[in-house]
């Protein structure tokens, strides 16, 4: 049953560009990017119990690094991409070292403050980041000589990366290391007593999460061919977190579904009215009050109850 569902889903995703219009194909690509991002934040929120409000930092760092190297130094994509990943992951190492001095709300505040520092810098340091104009004039790479400029080609490219990323992250949380991470979330003192280095487990997970955030950031900048400081804003971090929580933190499917819901909501609402922030805030409040463990666990419970009857 489960395998059948997977195959059906895979066929549907692979066949979608054959039937959907460009608008929907592009929407699909954006959902894949948002899914990678949400899944990477979920490593911390869902499995590590570490709620970060600074996940947009990875999008911004990877995107700005790759854009800057491409525009100012004229590097080719095959150099900018790995460099952007390395730079972002290194900074994730530094930020993790700072933020993990605290846990709980202290961690949340520090990640928020750090990402706001980056956001402010992106606005102010116009010589490097282009300030409020952002950086434009970017191009998409051509992996193995295949152009991904067309919507459908980019769709398959981001789908491939998303499947790889989510598979890797699912393996990560199901590995013994993932078990240690979950242990550090539930019983950090016992994990310490058992000889696990809880801090190191958390830090490595933070860095790993930052790495996949950077991958999403690269896809983000390839998709838009443009980067602006709003990508680093608190709203942007909050959208990712809302996706994770709305879908169901600590499950593999939850954040993907949540990210898709947030993205669709944002696209449809923005098409009709300009009140996205208002709606984002309201959805946040409603989800926390009425569906605190998310849509996917909620539906699973409902499905199990229905099967029993």
């Amino acid at each position: 049953m489960n395998r059948l569902a997977c195959i059906a889903l895979g066929l549907a995703l692979a066949g979608f560009p054959l039937v959907g219009g460009d608008f929907y194909i592009n929407l699909g690509s954006q959902i894949f990017i948002a899914a990678i991002l949400a899944a990477s934040l979920n490593l911390l929120v869902g499995y590590g119990g570490l709620v970060s409000l600074g996940h947009a930092a990875w999008i911004g760092l990877a995107a700005y690094t790759s854009a800057w190297l491409y525009l100012r130094l004229g590097f080719a994509h095959w150099i900018t991409a790995p460099l952007a990943l390395v730079v972002t992951t290194l900074i994730a190492g530094l930020f993790g070292w700072i933020a993990l001095r605290a846990t709980g709300l202290g961690f949340l505040m520090i990640t928020l403050a750090l990402s706001q520092v980056l956001w402010g810098t992106a606005y102010r340091w116009a010589a490097v980041t282009g300030g409020d104009n952002g950086l434009s004039g970017l191009t998409r790479p051509a992996p193995f000589g295949i152009s991904i400029d067309a919507p459908a080609a980019f769709y398959y490219f981001s789908l491939t990366v998303a499947i790889l990323a989510i598979w890797m992250m699912a393996r990560f949380v199901n590995s013994p290391f993932g078990a240690a991470l979950r242990g550090s979330r539930d019983e950090s003192r016992r994990m310490n007593a058992l000889g696990h280095n809880v801090w190191l487990v958390r830090w490595l997970s933070f860095v790993y999460s930052g790495f996949w955030g950077a991958v999403a950031g690269l896809l983000f900048v390839y998709y838009h061919k443009y980067i602006h400081p709003t990508a680093l804003s608190l709203t942007s971090s909050a959208e990712v977190l809302l996706g994770v929580i709305a879908g169901g933190a600590g499950t593999v499917a939850g954040p993907i579904v949540g990210a898709a819901i947030v993205l669709l909501l944002k696209n449809y609402v923005s098409a009709y009215l300009e009140r996205w922030n208002m709606l984002l805030g309201a959805v946040f409040v409603l989800i926390v009050i009425f569906m605190p463990d998310g849509v996917v666990p909620g539906f699973r419970r409902w499905w199990l109850r229905w099967r029993k009857q």
Binding site: L53, T235, A238, N277, M278, L280, G281, A282, V283, F284, V285, V288, I289
Partner: peptide, 8 residues
């Protein structure tokens, strides 16, 4: 929730 309210 306070974050949500701040957006509103």
């Amino acid at each position: 929730v306070t974050l949500g309210i701040s957006f509103i």
